[in-house]
Simulated assay, not measured.
Amino acid sequence: MDCHLDGFVKFNVDVVSHGNLDSAGIGGVCRDHNSVFLCCFAKGIGWNYALVAKTLAIRRALVIAGSMGIKKLIIESDNMLVVNLLKDAKKAPPWRIASIIEDCRIYSQAFDCILYHHSLREANSVANCLASLGTNAQ
C-alpha cells in the first residue's frame, strides 16, 4: 500500500479507568491533515480489562471514520501490542481481544490507506480527557 501523508485524517484514541473494579471509558479525537477538529467520541464501557478497552477504542474510531467516508486514516494509540497486532495480520491476538481485532481488520478494509501508529500517552491528552468523560457516561 503506497500511502503519502497528504490528505490523511488522524484519530487519537485513549482509555481511562478509575480503578480495577470501577467504570472505564474510551475516547477519541479526529483531526484532518491541518490539525483541524473533525469529530470526537466519549463512551462508557463499564468495567473492562485495559487491553480490551484499548482495542474497543480503536474499533470505535474505525467505525466513525468509515461512516464519515474517510479514505486515508491514521490511528494513534499508546498501546503498542494492539498497534502491532493491527499492523501485522499474521500475528495472532490474545484470545480476550481476538474478535475485536478481527472486527478492526475487517473495518480497515473500507479505507484506501490506513496506518497504525504508537504514540506516547502524553500525546493523547485530548483523547484521554474524552475517555475520562466516557467513564461518567455509563
Rank of each mutant, 00 (worst) to 15 (best):
Q138Y: 01
T135A: 03
I70C: 08
L38V: 14
N128M: 05
G28N: 09
S23V: 12
A137W: 03
L56N: 03
I70N: 01
C113F: 09
R121C: 14
S67F: 08
G134R: 08
L62E: 03
G44F: 01
F111M: 04
S99L: 14
D2F: 08
C3Y: 08
N12Q: 08
N79H: 14
C39L: 13
V36N: 14
V63Q: 13
A137I: 03
D88K: 02
N34E: 14
C129D: 10
A24E: 03
V16W: 09
D14L: 00
F41S: 04
L133Y: 03
A57V: 12
V36M: 12
S108F: 11
L51K: 07
D103N: 11
S119E: 09
A42I: 02
V63N: 01
L73S: 11
R60K: 15
F111N: 03
D78T: 07
G44W: 00
S35Q: 05
P93Q: 00
L51F: 02
R105V: 10
S119L: 05
L120I: 10
L133S: 02
V126E: 06
S132M: 01
L56R: 05
A65H: 08
T55I: 01
P93V: 00
W95R: 13
S67M: 13
L21G: 02
S23D: 14
H4A: 04
